[in-house]
Design a protein around this nucleic acid. Structure first.
Length: 578
RNA sequence: GCCCACAUAGCUCAGUCGGUAGAGCACAUUCUUGGUAAGAAUGGGGUCAUCGGUUCGAAUCCGAUUGUGGGCUCCA
């Protein structure tokens, strides 16, 4: 048994200790489940009153007493009928019992607390080491929103106080790069009460980043044979009826607006409109693959509790494209998209991600998923083969697919630990049928195209949220909202500093002059806090010979150089996106 | 949407037992004109999220609403 397993067992035991503490405080408590999780554990309880943060230290103190008492964890195997007696007053445990196929079940006891549990556990409560209760939260019984809401207590646990302290310090550190904090501090975006929740306003600095990202996407997509289209933000209801979205998606759509007896919806995705463009004329196999690209603004009515800064919003601008291709072209197109991801990730230095193949689950056919199992199996195999043939690592998760087909999602974690899908690459075998899309094949016969939905650069919202955390706000020069801060040493240098700014802007470099009557040190400090990649100090010397004294964000100071040389160097750095 | 918590100046936050508000930063003005991470003084700025209730009196207690946060559910 390795160290990791031991730690997991200890965390699981910590959850039992916590349950024991809860039982002593609330004798009528009903217990859900209490597993070990990454860094710690949780336990779900059904209690006579809501817990508040003030309860946590009390529960913790109680747990420490149980740990101090060093009570043994006693395991017993008992028959199911006996177990039903033991847990007669524990409805959640009885529900779990019903689903265990074996005749015998394991129960663990420490002190007065008995739990239905497969184990294993540490020897005694004294083996539970450094822990801290971190938060209380609501959680549906068995994760189903139709079930009762239980109270969950989260805790972290480690083998030593030192490791625990390090972990807590790390969490504090991570909070500093939370995109919500940085987005406000660096003036990238805001949310305004009058505009509405989940509807970000991009400030000029965020706007500059969006321009750069779109420029990148347009270059890459042009290079890879995409053509750009533009589509409206709203359409008639009929469009979404035809595409098949309405029954699956209506809940996440802003309610329709009705004009002259016609219902219109804000679009939650761009595909149906792109499909209309595909269908706008007779297509030949010679036209395929057809790759339609657009930065499309979509609106989704996400439930209020699901919003999360700019990572999860109600309005979003998607790096969208739909690739219409033949079955024979599929693998090349699909892997082409994956390679496009990798090209982007290299530019951004993104290394910590997981590619996830999301497949259907037979139980959802006709409900969550289009009811055509043979096409599901076939396209899932196509994706697996495309990934394997190109040696691209991925892991597979059932029951996570889109309603129209399997997909490869790129999963990333936010600074505060929440997981998100950044990019997505989806197969769609359903909409070409729903939308009656066809092309004429070599034999002169009508055939359905396969569709690939892809968004390697996610949405502007989620990508910029991610990049804020990824770079901790210190963007590379090409992406930085302000690339150069020009710092006059004293007011008499403002005039020349402005000339330098004009020269930089003439070369499409985003430069700002800090012409406040402040000391140079203060201006440098300000530029550092704004995480501007280059600071250019202008004093007597520089004014006299049109040179620049350059300081990097790292604090490194470059030797004095002619303004023209600085412009050349920076232009090169920016155009290569280094 | 659900459970819990929170909401005080543009930002970050104090505000004790209920007696009509304070700091730092930012902003404005003045002085200072400086060489690689904070020069100084003065000043303006708040219906204490909103609405209602309790009270002689509410930033403070209670309720509702809105927003935010931690989760659950759900997702680019």
């Amino acid at each position: 048994m390795n160290k990791q397993d031991n730690l997991e067992i200890m965390r699981h035991s910590a959850s039992h200790v916590m349950a024991g503490a809860i039982l002593s405080m609330f004798p009528g408590a009903r217990f859900g489940i209490g597993p070990a999780i990454e860094d710690g554990f949780y336990y779900d309880f059904d209690l006579p009153r809501p817990l508040t943060p003030e309860d946590l230290p009390v529960i913790e103190a109680n747990m420490k007493e149980i740990v101090g008492a060093d009570l043994p964890f006693e395991r017993r195997e008992i028959g199911k009928s006996e177990a039903k007696q033991v847990f007669a007053s524990q409805p959640y445990k009885l529900e779990l019992l019903e689903e265990i196929p074996d005749d015998k079940v394991g129960v663990y006891r420490q002190g007065g607390f008995v739990d239905l549990c497969r184990g294993p556990h540490v020897g005694s409560t004294g083996d539970v080491k450094a822990f801290k209760l971190t938060s209380i939260a609501g959680a549906y019984w068995r994760g189903d929103e139709h079930n009762a809401m239980l109270q969950r207590i989260y805790g972290v646990a480690f083998n030593s106080q030192k490791e625990l302290d390090e972990h807590l310090a790390q969490l504090e550190e991570a909070k500093k790069r939370d995109h919500r904090k940085l987005g406000k501090e660096l003036e990238i975006f805001i949310f305004d009460d009058l505009v509405g929740p989940g509807l970000p306003l991009w400030l000029p600095r965020g706007g500059a980043m969006i321009e750069e990202i779109e420029k990148l996407a347009k270059e890459m997509e042009f290079k890879h044979g995409y053509v750009r289209v533009r589509t409206p933000h709203i359409s008639k209801e009929d469009l979404f009826k035809q595409s098949g979205h309405l029954p699956y998606y209506a809940e996440s759509m802003y309610p329709p607006m009705e004009l002259e007896g016609v219902r219109y919806y804000l679009k939650p995705m761009n595909c149906p409109m792109h499909h209309r463009i595909f269908a706008s004329k007779m297509r030949s196999y010679r036209d395929l693959p057809l790759r339609l690209a657009e930065y499309g603004a979509c609106y989704r009515y996400e439930k209020s509790g699901e919003l999360f800064g700019v990572m999860r919003t109600r309005s979003m601008i998607m790096n969208d494209s739909h690739i219409y291709c033949t079955e024979g072209q599929f693998e090349q197109e699909f892997t082409g998209v994956i390679f496009l991801y990798l090209e982007y990730f290299k530019i951004f230095g993104i290394k910590e991600y997981i590619m996830r193949l999301s497949t259907h689950h037979p139980s959802g056919l006709g409900k969550k998923y289009v009811d055509n199992q043979s096409l599901w199996l076939k396209t899932e195999d196509m994706v697996r083969k495309a990934m394997n043939d190109n040696n691209i690592p991925f892991h597979e998760v059932a029951d996570e697919a889109a309603f129209y087909g399997p997909k490869i999602d790129v999963q990333i974690k936010s600074a505060v630990g929440r997981e998100f899908t950044l990019a997505t690459n989806q197969v769609d075998f359903a909409q070409s049928i729903n939308c009656d899309l066809k092309f004429i094949n070599k034999d002169g016969q009508e055939e359905r195209p396969l569709i690939i939905h892809r968004a390697p650069l996610s949405t502007h919202e989620r990508l910029i949220g991610f990049l804020l955390e990824h770079y901790a706000g210190a963007f590379p020069a090409w992406l930085a909202p302000v690339q150069v801060k020009i710092i006059p040493v004293s007011d008499r240098h403002n005039e020349h500093a402005t000339k330098v700014a004009v020269a930089l802007k003439g070369h499409a470099i985003r430069a700002e002059v800090d012409d406040r009557s402040e000391r140079m040190n203060q201006k440098i400090r300000q530029a550092q806090l704004e995480k501007v990649p280059y600071m250019v100090v202008i004093g007597d010397k520089e004014t006299a010979d049109n040179s620049v004294s350059v300081r990097r964000r790292s604090g490194e100071q470059l030797p004095a150089q002619p303004l023209a040389a600085f412009i050349d160097g920076l232009t090169e750095e920016i155009s290569n996106r280094r």
